[in-house]
């Protein structure tokens, strides 16, 4: 993590989780695990966030909410799916109101399995996502440079 120049802020949204993963995400912020020492802060505002942490699977009701929050987060951004429900729907995958994992709806960069995911693995997942975030930032810079020089950005927009 020595390459990290800025402090990444995360936004946590509870899709249809049972709370088990939510409280473990919160536990990461509190004294025993304390991710704040790395500059990671849990924010309530999507406009301030870099990392979007989602727990629980998508159901029909929160589809729009997740998409809305995702679109409000400024680029570059990464999505971390915490818990088995966010990964695939988990134990609830057969319920009539569930559509499955978060990747049904938005692109996911890191999957953290577990029921409930342990704080250690959540921290691991977030640290992994920060590498991807840094890569995306470099790519964005590169694209901006190319546009400035009058060349069209190759490969098309994501």
């Amino acid at each position: 993590m020595t390459f990290l120049k800025k402090s990444p802020w995360l936004l946590h949204y509870d899709a249809s989780s049972c709370n088990g993963c939510d409280i473990e995400v919160l536990a990461c912020l509190t004294p025993l695990y304390d991710v704040e020492r790395f500059g990671i802060i849990n924010t309530g505002n999507p406009k301030h966030a870099d990392v979007f942490v989602v727990t629980g699977g998508v159901n029909e009701q929160n589809r729009e909410v997740i998409r809305n929050i995702y679109e409000q987060i400024p680029e570059p951004k990464v999505v971390v799916a915490v818990g088995i429900c966010a990964t695939s729907g988990g134990i609830f995958r057969e319920c009539y109101n569930m559509s499955g994992g978060i990747d049904q709806l938005i692109p996911v960069d890191v999957y953290v399995p577990g029921c409930a995911a342990r704080p250690e693995s959540i921290i691991d997942g977030i640290v992994k996502s920060l590498e991807i975030l840094e890569e995306k930032r470099i790519q964005m810079k590169e694209r901006a440079r190319q546009i400035k020089q009058g060349r069209s950005p190759g490969g098309g927009e994501r």
Binding site: E60, Q61, R93, E94, C95, Y96, N97, M98
Partner: peptide, 20 residues
């Protein structure tokens, strides 16, 4: 409670077939 299927508990349906 807004659900996709109206009155879901009347005739329960599942995603996927057969017992788990």
């Amino acid at each position: 409670i807004r659900t996709t299927v109206p009155y879901p508990f009347r005739n329960t349906s599942f995603k996927g077939e057969g017992p788990c």
